[in-house]
Design a binder for these strands. Structure first.
Lengths: 224, 224
DNA sequence: CGAAACGTCATGTTGCCGCAATGTGTCGCA
DNA sequence: TGCGACACATTGCGGCAACATGACGTTTCG
């Protein structure tokens, strides 16, 4: 799961990033509208968390521009301006949800989950392949009914692969899903994770295999 | 715009219906879970407004059943049970939004608009010819529903040919599509790829042929 | 402070890709 | 019609880049 947090207050941004990260999501950060507009076409985000009061304008003005380049990214507006009229104008600007500060982080999470379940994203809540199942809401993998715990990065790899189970996932896409664009990784780190994940899947007898296609990427398949 | 209001209190239901009608929407009404379940498959609703405390159970239990028959109807839960934990569990049950009573009708409208604003998800561009199809987004070919893996260069050849299926593709164009204009290839490398590709297409019984025309180029045709 | 996780390096392995050698059909020309 | 030139077809092979995997040092987190 890959998010963009558009927020100018460093503390708030950092708090959000680390909290989201603790829930196994990758959150990039932009502190101005301009920065956000550059990052959105590049990273393929699953959702955007948007503040209103930004140094170079109202966050709401970003929404139409987002819709222009990628129509279906969910946007959650997260702001101190929580009066009724502001909520309404926010939603009418194209936001998918509107949450007023102060807020409970748990509610933000729930609204994120809700917003990403939307049909635009045709995202099933749980995927199953072979003996392996992955609950995308609770970020928890299972083999049959046994818990199958994974470190953060490996879980991100598995998630990206399972979301397109049975289809090729280009290496580039995987890289973006596992590492944000902030961290640039130059070496074969992804290969390491794939390797480790392969071993664990085999040890747990998960009934799935990761096939690599040279020059393209990886694919998760049911074992034969 | 066609809505279903699931709500047991007659006054509230009536108020909603008339208010929605004043905004040019059609709102049907169900006062029990059972009634709602009958109506949903029949009327093709654009959204559902759902109360929780219903005579025959919690409205939330309706959501999974809705998702079963028509996955993509937006559901807004509208209820007096507005505590944080309840909001979270509501959203996690699959609701698209959660609004606590008392509420401003204007906000319900805004949230309805937000939830129904759904840009038609444009399918990844795909080309099909014979039994062969090619997903240009994911750079992935299929014969019927079997994956049809190809090395990078061969896939590039196939892509260039399928984009112009049924038409002649001059050799020069192919060269440029397969090797950039940067790389100069001096020998009959393209012919190699064409040859290998032909064999694979035949082996997979893809229902297409590559015809070569002397002095011009190649053309991809449906097999006779 | 210890353990798990992560990124990097080094080494072994695979298989694509470009090349060239050879085969096959087509066309021009006498 | 016969012959040779040419364009394309096919196949084997070697170089090399991409991938696989295990080891190691650093970082992160409880």
């Amino acid at each position: 799961m890959r998010l963009l947090v558009v927020e100018d207050e460093p503390e708030m941004a950092l708090a959000l990033q680390s909290a989201l990260r603790r829930h196994d999501m990758i959150a990039d950060h932009a502190d101005t509208l301009a920065a956000a507009m550059e990052m959105i076409p590049l990273g393929s985000y699953d959702a955007i968390i948007l503040d209103r009061g930004l140094p170079d304008g109202d966050g709401l003005s970003l929404i139409p521009r987002i819709r222009q380049c990628r129509a279906s990214i969910p946007v959650i507006v997260l702001t101190a301006r929580g009066r009724l009229a502001e909520r309404i104008s926010g939603l009418d600007s194209g936001a998918d949800d509107y949450l007023a500060k102060p807020f409970a982080f748990e509610e933000l999470l729930a609204r994120l989950r809700a917003v990403m379940r939307r049909p635009d994203h045709l995202r099933p809540m749980a995927v199953k392949l072979g003996r392996l199942s992955l609950d995308l809401d609770h970020r928890e993998a299972r083999v049959e009914n046994m818990r199958f715990d994974l470190p953060r990065r490996e879980l991100l790899v598995l998630e990206a692969l399972m979301r397109r189970a049975g289809r090729m996932v280009p290496r580039e896409i995987l890289m973006e899903a596992v590492f944000g664009m902030s961290d640039e990784v130059q070496s074969n780190t992804l290969d390491s994770h794939i390797s480790r994940l392969r071993r664990k899947l085999a040890d747990a007898d998960a009934g799935v295999t990761i096939n690599g296609v040279r020059g393209v990427g990886y694919m998760l398949m049911e074992q034969i």
